[in-house]
């Protein structure tokens, strides 16, 4: 069996990309994003991408770099408020956008990876989100049908992993990564620390290796912070210092 471990992002992406494909990208804001893979996708110039990601990075970092290079045709997201270029491209009609409520997006991906083609949720009933979709009453409450979601490629980021593709995430950098790992026809994981098989705690593996096709240790992680917020010693109040 060919190994899953790759040298770097470019090698991990070899033979996988094509114009017009759908890519899921893990992360919440800039937290837990596969930054090496995003940079490598930009280098390839692949275009007309549909990208499924909760946000679209910021101007100049994260998925924002694929917007700048014009490689994204459509985004499926829940919140894009941090990105001025996004707003501009959308309002001028150069970018398609499908807003999904965050929980609906997470569940669509979870369902897609689990072989569930559709489900019913209360979220969005009576709003624009439910327009054109089937609704049904269960136990006196109205629900809207949402479809499971899969992608040609899922790119995820974990803290630690092994050659089997087992992944462990760290703190809130987990977010959308575990579901996306299950929903890609091909899933590539970039990790901060590649450890020997057998050294991860088997009871605490977040993503079992079956979902991961290729894995590599990222060359460098900038791990930029979007909103550094601190408190002075001795007080509770937070004070925002600067935006990234």
């Amino acid at each position: 069996m060919a190994g899953k471990t790759q040298k770097d992002a470019a090698e991990a992406l070899a033979g996988v990309l094509f114009d017009g494909m759908t890519i899921m990208a893990g992360g919440f804001g800039l937290c837990g994003i596969p930054e090496n893979l995003i940079a490598a996708i930009r280098e390839t110039g692949v275009k007309n991408l549909t990208v499924v990601s909760n946000n679209c990075g910021i101007d100049g970092f994260g998925l924002g770099v694929l917007l700048e290079s014009g490689q994204i045709k459509k985004m499926i997201s829940s919140y894009v408020g941090e990105n001025k270029l996004f707003e501009k491209l959308y309002l001028s009609g150069e970018l398609e956008l499908e807003f999904n409520p965050q929980g609906t997006l997470a569940e669509r991906i979870r369902a897609g990876g689990a072989g569930i083609p559709a489900f019913f949720t209360k979220t969005g009933v009576g709003t624009l989100v439910a327009e054109g979709k089937e609704t049904r009453e269960f136990d006196g409450e109205l629900y809207v049908m949402e479809r499971g979601l899969t992608a040609d490629l899922a790119i995820v980021k974990a803290h630690t992993g092994d050659a089997e593709g087992n992944l462990v995430y760290r703190k809130t950098a987990r977010n959308f990564n575990p579901m996306m790992a299950t929903a890609g026809k091909v899933t590539i994981a970039e990790i901060e620390h590649l450890v020997p098989v057998g050294s991860l705690d088997k009871d605490n593996i977040h993503t079992p290796g079956i979902y991961v096709d290729r894995i590599f240790q990222g060359a460098n992680f900038e791990k930029r912070i979007e909103r550094v917020t601190t408190r002075p010693k001795e007080t509770q109040m937070g004070e925002e210092k600067a935006s990234a």
């Binding site: 829940s78 919140y79 894009v80 707003e87 956008l97 409520p101 965050q102 929980g103 979220t123 989100v129």
Partner: peptide
Amino acid sequence: VKGMGGAMDLVA
């Protein structure tokens, strides 16, 4: 154009 984030799920 910002998006609903988790607000629709929360109110539901």
